[in-house]
Structure formats: C-alpha cells, structure tokens
Computed example of a mutant assay.
Amino acid sequence: MNQSEKLRSLINCSIFAAITAILAQLEIPLPLVPISGQTLAVGMTAIVLGSRLGALSMVCYAAIGAAGLPVFAAFRGGMQVLVGPTGGYIIGFIATAYVTGLILEKTRFTIPMALVANTVGMLITLLFGTIQLKFVMDLEWGAALASGVYPFVIVGLIKAFLASWIGITVRKRLVQANLIADSEKGAA
C-alpha cells in the first residue's frame, strides 16, 4: 500500500468515525441503555471499509470518546462512559466491525450477505454490551437480558437491513469512484 492509499484509508476511517458520532445522537432513551444510530453506523462502516479498516474506525471512535469528546449517545464522552453500563456496547463495536467486514470479505459484498453479517454483528454488540451491563449494574442475567438485549432485537434487525442496503450502495459508488479498492477478498 503506497502513501496515497494509506492516507485515503485513514481519511475513510476518520469519516466513518465521524458518521458514527453523528448517528449516535439519534437516540430513543430507555432506562439503562438507549436505542441509538450507532449500530447502524457500525454496520455501514464494516461494509464499506471491511474488517481491518472498519475495526480501526471504531477504535478511533472509541478513543476520541474516551478522550472526552462528546461523540457517544446523548453527547456524552469520557472514560466513565466506556467503563459504565453502556461501555460494553461501544467496545463491542470494534469486534462487530471486524467480524461483519470479515464475513463479507470471505463471501460476497451483496445485500443478503451484508444482512447476515450485520445480524451476526448485532449479536456480538449485544453480547459485549450485556456482559458489561450485568457486571457494572450488578444485575441478574435475566434482568441484564431484559435491559440489554430484548429491547434491541427488532430495531437491531431493522438497522441491520438499513446498514446492509445503504452500506452496499455506498460501497459500490465508492468503488466506481476509485475511492476504495474493488476486492471481494478485502475492502479498501
């Protein structure tokens, strides 16, 4: 990868970290964990950037939030968010982006495969988030699932579909514009 491609990759990572920060502000408050647009952004990021760059973009997002910039849901930022009840979801975004992108790199960048990959990604995010929620809030597993998983399944599937459709559409256009690599075995 030459210097120009490296720079383009870093710019793309930054753009998708910013998109995640913007969509994080679209939220429906719930008692412990809000429904937000973050997971929609994570799915789109993984589709467009692939596993490595998608995960790097989510590392950037988590890092700028941890540094105190108000990029998490409800314009929150700081380490207290990452170690708090909702921090597991944010940490899970890194694994989610990597696995979602990897599934597509190993199969095909199509809407049906992106939907499968995003559904797997949703489960990864919910797993990370619920585990941290359970321990930080000292909840029984049933209460953790009731607060950290059940409210998000239906809306998560809707966001998985939207991320798949938007992500594949954006990816195709970026490939046509030569802004990302056209490779079924690895994005950007």
Rank of each mutant, 00 (worst) to 15 (best):
F16Y: 09
G167H: 00
I124M: 05
E105G: 05
S57E: 13
Q80G: 12
L82N: 01
V116I: 15
S51Y: 04
L26W: 05
Y89L: 02
V120T: 09
P85I: 10
P151R: 04
A160R: 13
G54D: 09
A67G: 14
G167I: 14
Y61G: 15
G186K: 10
Q80K: 13
V149Y: 08
G78T: 07
T119Y: 02
S36L: 01
Q176T: 13
A188C: 13
T130P: 05
G156S: 08
S164D: 00
I103S: 03
N2P: 03
I158F: 12
Q80C: 07
F152D: 08
V99T: 10
A17Q: 10
I28P: 03
G167Q: 01
Q176S: 14
I154Y: 09
T125P: 00
Q25R: 05
T45A: 10
A41P: 06
R52D: 08
L133T: 01
P29E: 10
S51E: 10
A187M: 14
G142K: 10
L69A: 14
L104A: 12
I131N: 02
L23Q: 02
L174K: 01
R173F: 07
C60I: 15
L126R: 06
A146Y: 04
F72G: 01
G92L: 01
N12K: 05
Y150E: 06
G54V: 00
S164Q: 06
Y89A: 01
W165K: 11
T20N: 05
L139E: 10
R8P: 07
V42A: 12
G167R: 04
S57Y: 00
G186S: 10
Q176E: 14
A74R: 01
G68F: 04
A177V: 03
S147M: 13
I28M: 06
V42W: 09
A117F: 00
A117Q: 06
Y89E: 07
Q3A: 15
